[in-house]
């Protein structure tokens, strides 16, 4: 390795060493701890119930377990204030893909997409707000949205996911060229 490489390597290592991570929001650790104790206890109870009752009433039990889980589910915090953005061309279809990470499978969640003026969702001409029911799998769920810009104004697209008393709003800045 020559001198230049050595200097570059050192500069890179200094940069990596200082590469920051935002701190957790105030109160996040406490909230996470409370949820963990509630949900962890429930999982322990569910495991005991499943062991005790066996498979004969497995279907009924599964419904009970899910219902119990949802009834006591805590409020999730809203997404980060950081707003990602995309740039789309006028009057051309452009597909953006939103990723929803869910800690558990959710049936009958409600998804509402609110569009800025001058942006339409393909297949829904003239509608600024589109709502539908959907199911989420545990893990990451991909939602492709095909957008069309009718004016150059752009704006903010909101995707609000609701399930029982929980909700999370995702924001996407849409610029038009």
């Amino acid at each position: 390795m020559n001198n230049r490489h050595v200097m570059e390597e050192q500069e890179l290592l200094d940069l990596l060493k200082d590469y920051p991570v935002p701190e957790a929001e105030a109160g996040f650790y406490d909230r996470a701890l409370v949820r963990a104790v509630h949900k962890g206890s429930r999982r322990q109870r569910n495991r005991w119930m499943l062991t005790g009752f066996g498979s004969a009433i497995a279907a009924g039990l599964a419904i009970w377990a899910i219902s119990a889980m949802l009834m006591t589910a805590p409020q999730l915090p809203d997404a980060a204030p950081t707003i990602p953005g995309v740039t789309i061309a006028m009057e051309q279809e452009h597909t953006v893909r939103l990723v929803f990470a869910s800690a558990e499978a959710l049936d009958s969640a409600t998804l509402t997409v609110s569009l800025p003026e001058g942006i339409e969702l393909a297949g829904f001409p003239g509608q600024r707000e589109i709502t539908w029911e959907t199911s989420l799998q545990e893990g990451k769920n991909l939602l492709p949205l095909t957008l069309i810009a009718l004016t150059p104004a752009g704006g903010e697209l909101l995707a609000r996911l609701e399930h029982d008393d929980r909700n999370r709003t995702f924001r996407l800045r849409v610029d038009v060229t």
Partner: peptide, 8 residues
């Protein structure tokens, strides 16, 4: 969050 739930 999932880690804490699992750990508990």
């Amino acid at each position: 969050q999932e880690l804490l739930i699992k750990a508990f």
